[in-house]
Amino acid sequence: MSDSVETLPRVPLFSPGRIWVLASSTFTQLVRMRTFYFLIVFAILVAAASNLDLLYTPAQKLRILKDASFGAMSIFSWLFAIAATAVLIPRDLEDRTLYTILSKPVPRLEYLLGKLGGVMLTIGVALVVMQVLFTGFLFFREVTVLASERQYLESQGEMSAADIQVQLDLIRAQGVQWQLLYALVAIFLKASVVAALTMLVSTFASSTLFTMIVSSIVFMVGHFHKLAAGYWLEEFGDSLFTKLIIKPIVMIIPDFRVFNVAENVVGGEPVSAAIMLSLTGLAALYVAVYSAVALYLFIDKEF
């Protein structure tokens, strides 16, 4: 008896390999749900925005293309993070895949991290594809806008070559820039926090709909609760209501506005690597704590 126990292979307590297998299968599962069809809509939107030829200045034409594209990326990422994460555990239950996985030596932590990793991988891949598509359109638009603007300014004969160059540089500042990748990272970080939050909700939720509604509400409230709290603190001071309701809400709900840097980075504001590092650290902290709490609620959950 003891001999047969000794011959069993030892299973590591924590295995990144197993998490990767779960994450990649989740990715495949999500791809099979035709998630990437959204890219067709995105391509149409970017093409439409790049051909929007109202009475805009050349720089405005590029800015509108960037705003529309990053707006679409942002909506896709948080909407997908909520919807995809909310359906994953219930679907595994429905397909009985969950029983197969958990009956094997797979710790529940790895299961949760694998699922979350799969959602983040899907969002990451989708964002990269969208960024490539968008950069192509923006580059093409920048080249055509610069050429026509140069031709126009030269034909007017009023500006010196140096002055024309300044005008063209101002337009170029709204074109393809490395800084735009920071905006992409910020969108991804925000989506990751939303996904981790949704996973936490789904570990105690009674239905997919409940998970989606609660996560969406927390996501929305997370954008203005600090603003509202400021008003309430002014109105109610240090009352019992403030202490028991307002302050805990402000503490528990994440401040999603800090991840909105993409808006202004797209507008041309410079962002330092230190700030991006701080944002990444904050997002990682949220994901880690939400995953830990999710595990605490999920670890002895009976199915």
Binding site: N264, E269, L282
Partner: peptide, 27 residues
């Protein structure tokens, strides 16, 4: 746990928010 985490991360998050506003990264 979430409340304790909230207490711990608040100074960092508020500081980051201030920094981002100063750098005109969030309006």
């Amino acid at each position: 746990i979430l409340l304790l985490f909230g207490l711990a991360k608040s100074p960092f998050e508020n500081g980051l928010s201030r920094k981002l506003q100063e750098a005109k990264l969030i309006a």
